[in-house]
Amino acid sequence: MSGQVKQHPGLNLHREDAETRDQTEEVLFGFWVFLMSDLVLFSLLFATYGTMLHSMAGGPGPKQLFDIRNAGIETVALLLSTFSFGQASLAMKYDDAPGRVQTWLLVTLGLGLVFLGYEIYDFVDMIGKGGPPSRSGYLSSFFALVGTHGLHVTCGCVWIIVMIAQVRMFGLDTLVKTRLLRLGLFWHFLDVMWVGIFSVVYLQGLVG
């Protein structure tokens, strides 16, 4: 590493003037605060799921409903999408190449859609096996937790589409860059939440 101050990747902050850097840091800090507020929401959904583990009401449980293959595919899709977003960030920071940024964003979007597709497929499969959300408190909490994550990913996908359009329209100016930076934080954060979901919900359910 060079002796330079390390900055958030994605912006060549050391080449910007001090005012732009301050503004960017302010915006990013605000976004981190939002993410932490979101984290509380997720953590309470996790806690609700935890309190509902025994609330099967005679309905089917994880072993009857979960398919480890689907969960695995969703995990790989999301991990790869996080990596491809990283590539978009690198292209933005070092190459200043809007085309390459758009390509990587498209790849990320595709992987996000694969994730969502499998998740919907998985939900339909579960409902077909007699496990709709109205069947028991346990299933309500499962669908609320995993569904909330899915909704976040959906919002992320819409955001990616918006950003592809903005890169095309405005190029990689500061405003677009800070937005991509925030989108990146959002996307990587959702990945962290997914790690919690596949561990606490799917794997724990199939073991316990």
Binding site: A57, P133, A144
Partner: peptide, 18 residues
């Protein structure tokens, strides 16, 4: 709201609600 609109069972009397 999910309980009321989507027939879920987070806080209902029966069906595992708490």
């Amino acid at each position: 709201a999910l309980d009321r609109y989507a027939d879920m069972h987070f806080f209902t009397n029966g069906m595992g609600g708490n």
